[in-house]
Design a protein around this nucleic acid. Structure first.
Lengths: 144, 144
DNA sequence: AGATGTAGTTGTATAGTACAACGTGAATTG
DNA sequence: CAATTCACGTTGTACTATACAACTACATCT
């Protein structure tokens, strides 16, 4: 086994370990929003509103899944729908003020948790780590 | 926002994006084993057998969850149980030859997928990326 | 106007998970 | 040593996330 193989093996294991823990971690950090709800809401916030179909496409989820997740978020009062006057089939989804508020809290908690975990890293390492992850995920997205 | 904040933000987003995709990726790479089954089986293989309780503790899963996962793996013929002669409550779990075989295939597929994704990285970057992930996850585990 | 396509919902099924209650065997202790 | 307590695992139950298929409603194109 080459050094290269060893590195890839470690990367694989560590990313997998992280993924396994992610949902549980999300539940701990922000119990009011699951990892998926959080993600969808964050996307709406980020994009200043978008359609259910867009969410489905972006996150490779079935539209029924998105429909139900959004229904749940709406029931919680975190998302509102605006029918597109141009095309009545379309609902443009937006976070409500309440939704924006919980999202902001969740983001703060997450950010804080990450900051704590990374507290003893120096700036250069953080920067490189960030760029490696970007590079890794970017390669990923090209392949679907 | 400092440079440091920006890096942490990127790390957070990218790790989250990875986690979101992980199950789907696992399903694509090795359809016969879910991410969890794969993980449990790999642990058994790695540890040369262990108890259900150990798996639950290690992966922060409820013992009932492990029990059912193991039951499913046993039904598929991938795991066998050996009652501990010292303590009849204990079942030491081992991969069967068939289990070791699918695991080995799955590991090969995963490894190959990772190698492909990381093909254009040079050795130094791979090495640093691996060490960053190790460092990140190690900090994680101390906190439970 | 009719055919085809797109956005979203709902019915149904499955996997993964947790918690609580339980059975069984081991260990401890009065 | 008998009784209690503890540890390991299973089973009942419930919930969430998810997919696929069938459907409704609207839009677009010919």
């Amino acid at each position: 086994m080459t050094q290269r193989d060893a590195s890839v093996e470690i990367i694989q294991r560590q990313l997998t370990a992280f993924a396994r823990r992610a949902r549980a971690t999300a539940a701990r950090i922000h119990p009011e929003l699951s990892l998926v709800s959080y993600t969808l809401l964050a996307h709406l916030d980020d994009q200043q509103g978008c359609r259910a179909t867009d969410l489905a496409a972006h996150y490779l989820l079935d539209k029924s899944t998105v429909s139900r997740q959004i229904a749940a978020l709406e029931k919680l009062g975190f998302v509102e729908r605006r029918v597109d006057p141009e095309d009545h089939r379309v609902q443009v989804l937006h976070p409500t003020p309440a939704g924006a508020a919980v999202l902001s809290n969740a983001m703060t908690s997450r950010r804080q948790a990450f900051h704590e975990r990374l507290a003893d890293w120096d700036a250069a390492d953080l920067d490189r780590f960030a760029s490696y992850l970007l590079r890794y995920n970017a390669a990923q997205e090209l392949k679907g």
